[in-house]
């Protein structure tokens, strides 16, 4: 029995969704609406007391960290391998996943939360929002939600996030100039991870990520977009956030 609790095919939720699709593994999908705070409701907190998405439940075992979760998926299920056999490529896969998870993605998502997540919930009743914050288990997530809901990101931290977004984009372009895939010569979990954070870069940072300035990122994103697993995964999206992926369609 395999159940995935997830939101849109995007960021952390999209990582196990795309990994499972690449492996050809069927699973019971349990959609949680992040903007409705489904992830903080008591029934989900029984699965993941931290109230973070995604969570994978496999034969009673619960996994809640999306990057190690992808390694578990690759190790456990049949299907094409998603980790290189060469130990050095494996190391590079993991190194870049950490860079994505801890440096690049948090900066992009801070901007995303300030322009998308915050405004999407902000017009609700103030008392309702305060109550929603009270139900969040982790203090770090309470801080993030409070900032998003009440537009409390400072200009300095948004500016720093934009700077890091630009720096990360440049580092990624440079890396992909030397390697066809993130780990080296093999498509891997690091590409799945990177696609989830970066598929909308040409839209969110059009002046920095485009065919002229970052041709290698654009080609890499399009190659991943064209994979059947990516198409099938993003077709599960329910919001306009996921449909942004079609910007990667090649113009014939």
């Amino acid at each position: 029995m395999l159940t995935l609790y997830h939101w849109e095919p995007n960021a952390n939720s999209g990582k196990p969704m795309l990994a499972l699709a690449e492996k050809g593994v069927e699973y019971q999908s349990h959609y949680l609406d992040l903007l409705n705070f489904d992830q903080h409701k008591p029934e989900y907190l029984k699965i993941n007391p931290d109230g973070t998405i995604p969570a994978l439940v496999h034969d009673g075992k619960i996994l809640t960290e999306s990057t190690p979760m992808m390694e578990y998926i690759d190790e456990t299920f049949d299907g094409p391998p998603l980790r290189p056999t060469d130990p050095k490529e494996r190391w590079r896969m993991r190194w870049w996943m950490r860079f994505f998870d801890s440096y690049f993605a948090p900066s992009l998502s801070m901007i995303g939360w300030s322009v998308f997540v915050g405004p999407a919930v902000r017009n609700r009743d103030r008392a309702e929002l305060e109550a929603a914050i009270e139900r969040i288990p982790l203090e770090s997530r309470r801080i993030a939600w409070r900032k998003a809901m009440f537009n409390q990101f400072s200009e300095a931290e948004l500016a720093e996030s934009r700077r890091r977004g630009a720096f990360g984009t440049a580092a990624l372009e440079q890396h992909l100039t030397a390697h066809p895939w993130i780990a080296g010569n093999t498509f891997s979990l690091a590409d799945i991870n990177g696609f989830n954070l970066g598929y909308a870069l040409p839209l969110s940072q059009p002046d920095r990520c485009n065919d002229e300035k970052t041709p290698h990122i654009m080609e890499w994103l399009r190659k991943i977009y064209e994979r059947p697993a990516t198409k099938a995964t993003w077709a599960k999206g329910r919001t306009q956030m996921a449909s942004r992926v079609t910007l990667l369609q090649r113009k014939s």
Partner: peptide, 17 residues
């Protein structure tokens, strides 16, 4: 097994962050 490997990696990530 794969679940213990997951746990080892999740702890590594948790400690790092």
């Amino acid at each position: 097994d794969a679940y213990e490997h997951y746990r080892a990696r999740a702890w590594g990530q948790f400690a790092a962050l």
